[in-house]
Design a protein around this nucleic acid. Structure first.
Lengths: 200, 200
DNA sequence: ATCGTCGTATAGCGCCGTTATAACGGCGGC
DNA sequence: GCCGCCGTTATAACGGCGCTATACGACGAT
């Protein structure tokens, strides 16, 4: 059972070739960021030639789109691997911690997912992730503990935790910095309440 | 009095050449973002050849550093062109609005200033801008109206407004979106108070 | 008048993303 | 059992990129 990457492309199925290309792309991304993700270097690692990549993915942007989809899959796993607290507000706070955790563990992936230089419309995987956050916020609202509209609060929560995460990744301050907790706590304190309120 | 850009490099002084290069870089950046900023295209616009650029700036990264300095100068002007409110908390809120305004008016510049792909240590101009925010926060603290340490609150404020701005620029929602005000208001409401408190 | 230095130009290297063209190989029709 | 088709892969090249070895011209010091 030889290693996949050492086989020439002709000796394995197209699906395996696709997977080898994406795996090499992931490696290069993690190693050198978006700038280090070169088609030719990728080809050398995956044992493939450029036209093969273009046959399977179209162009580099589309290849990166598929790579981003894989990133979001791993991102989702960050939230499903462990069980969140039962209390919906605590679940949100727990989600913030997982979010920041993912960004710090995979900074190059995070940049690609949320700060891609060439603007693309969000992929289905990205929208699904955002929807998961919205459902968390809706759960707080359903408990009568949200102090703003669900849509607006969702956007606000994401803004805040994204701001913290991207500045952490950029190295502007260290992981344990008090500002991180300060932002998350402020958003939760302001947009949720401790006890349920029955409107109407 | 002929236009500077139409002159060949030999017919003007080195300082004018430097300025022409930076001006062309600014134009290209605004037009096509970081990806559109190519040395060769820049040379064509500035009436200059590549070695001249490298003679004056060293390499592309250093050229971009100088360009970023110019961006921060314009960024600072955003805050000094108009007078902020006298009340320190209102001045902070006013600063948030100017910050977001700048990001929306110069998205490519903002990306370069705060989301450069190849991490560089902050330039002096960047540190000066951050210090201006810290002084604003310190003024709130001096009035006995800050509920956290100056350093931490400064970092938290910046995180929040940066998160909002970068997602606005990325097009994830529109300028008037309620989330923008929601985040800014939440941070101010949580980290400042309306009346002064004399500790000790 | 000569020389050195500073600013600029010519021409080229090696890398990039991308593609025109062609060769390989499995699979259905005869 | 052979043939031709078509999906997949390879060879080789194009134009553009950042960058640089080298050379040339103007100008001040001697």
């Amino acid at each position: 059972m030889p290693a996949t990457a050492t086989l020439r492309a002709r000796d394995r199925g197209p699906a395996a070739t696709r997977r080898a290309i994406l795996a090499a792309a992931e490696t290069l991304l993690a190693r050198g960021g978006e700038a280090g993700l070169s088609i030719r270097e990728l080809c050398a690692r995956a044992g493939v030639t450029p036209p093969t990549v273009y046959h399977h993915f179209g162009d580099k942007g589309a290849l990166v789109d598929r790579l981003v989809d894989e990133c979001f899959a791993e991102f989702d796993r960050t939230f499903t691997r462990r069980r969140p607290p039962a209390d919906p507000v605590e679940a949100l706070r727990w989600g913030f911690a997982r979010y920041v955790e993912y960004g710090l563990a995979h900074p190059a992936h995070y940049r690609l997912m949320f700060q891609r230089s060439t603007a693309r419309r969000p992929t289905a995987a990205a929208l699904a992730s955002y929807d998961r956050l919205r459902r968390r916020v809706a759960a707080i609202d359903a408990a009568g503990r949200l102090t703003a509209a669900v849509e607006d609060a969702t956007a606000a929560f994401w803004s805040a935790v994204h701001g913290v995460t991207s500045l952490l990744i950029a190295g502007f301050w260290k992981p344990g910095a008090p500002a991180v907790a300060l932002v998350c706590n402020a958003m939760i304190a302001q947009l949720t309440r401790k006890e349920a309120v029955h409107v109407r």
